[in-house]
């Protein structure tokens, strides 16, 4: 059987921007203040009274072709056979090229440890058969996690049966995080107001 490839589908028809994922991640992974492995961007658009607000939960895309791993000089950043992209804290020298090269700004330098850090898909939980903390707490059940290589998994079936989107497909990273119903403006990086 083929290797697993873990992935996530975020169904934005259900997400209501509660940020439970954002806080669950801080707690589960002891993430310091000022840096985020997981966050929810909010974008407002329209003219009164026809106004909409869109939510875009963000995390590491655990790309199939991750620029961070390509650019890491020490092998600290690596991709596991199951697709999870991780940082080996003992090997990381803090050169920050992975941070610079991530098209999604999913990485950051830990202020105390001075090594690169990011979402791990909660590998410590996933390895023991439990979904990531953000998926566990998602009030809306907007986050679905599983094996993209398993034709029977819910993530695979959602990806196959819905017009899913990924962030910045042009960056050529092949993300493993897919969105359903994402708004173009929310997905764009522009700061133009």
């Amino acid at each position: 059987m083929a290797d697993k490839r873990f992935g996530m589908v975020i169904d934005l028809r259900r997400c209501h921007g509660c940020k439970a994922c954002q806080v669950a991640c801080k707690s589960e992974n002891d993430v310091p203040l000022g840096v985020w492995r997981s966050w929810v961007k909010e974008v407002e658009q329209g003219t009164y009274p026809n106004v909409k607000r869109h939510f875009l939960p963000r995390l590491c895309n655990h790309c199939e072709h991750p620029a961070c791993v390509r650019n890491c000089p020490t092998g600290a950043s690596y991709k596991r056979p199951d697709g999870v992209v991780l940082v080996d804290r003992n090997k990381c020298i803090g050169c920050r090229y992975c941070i610079a090269s991530c098209p999604y700004q999913s990485r950051f330098l830990l202020a105390d440890e001075k090594v690169a850090d990011k979402c791990t898909f909660c590998a410590h939980r996933v390895d023991q058969g439990i979904v990531p903390a953000c998926v566990n707490t998602c009030i809306a059940r907007a986050r679905i996690f599983g094996d993209l290589n398993d034709p029977n998994s819910e993530v695979r079936q959602l990806v196959d049966s819905h017009p899913v989107q990924v962030l910045k497909p042009e960056a050529g990273q092949s993300p493993s995080v897919f969105y359903i119903g994402a708004d173009d403006n929310a997905m764009r990086g522009s700061e133009a107001g």
């Binding site: 840096v35 966050w39 974008v43 407002e44 658009q45 950051f108 330098l109 107001g193």
Partner: peptide, 13 residues
Amino acid sequence: NASIVYDVFHVNP
């Protein structure tokens, strides 16, 4: 017009 009403900041590497 679309405006970002919440986002986190990222320290430049």
